[in-house]
Amino acid sequence: MTQDALGHLEMQVMEVLWARGESNVSDVVPRLGRPLAYTTVMTTLDRLFKKNLLVRRKWERAFFYAPRWTRQEWERKRAGDFMAAFLASPQVSGDLLISSLVDAVGQHDTALLDEFEKKIRSKRRELGRRGE
């Protein structure tokens, strides 16, 4: 899945394909709501295919394109990618004006986390005994 944001035309083409299903260039062109050259749409479809957003098959010298994911799946992946990119950024704890609970929470040794959980359970038991 690409992390690049989609351009306006790319998004329009994706909308057509989500609405219509598998289509070739001639099917997409009249549904874009504005006069666009056949080659422009062909290039856009090819770019979306290279971005791994579409699958395609060849039938009688023409390519037929279909979305790789449903719109819902794509939205979910996009959100996931965005968060992954955000968390991978070296700016996370420094140059972003964000107060985050994960500021002090990194990739920790799971044994250490197990140890913390044990302590929390024990504290909860103690609080329970004291009736808090």
Binding site: L87, A88, D109
Partner: peptide
Amino acid sequence: VARIAADSPQPSLASSLL
């Protein structure tokens, strides 16, 4: 929340929040 980060499959996450 730390556990989510620890279990995250993204390797980039490991270096960024380490």
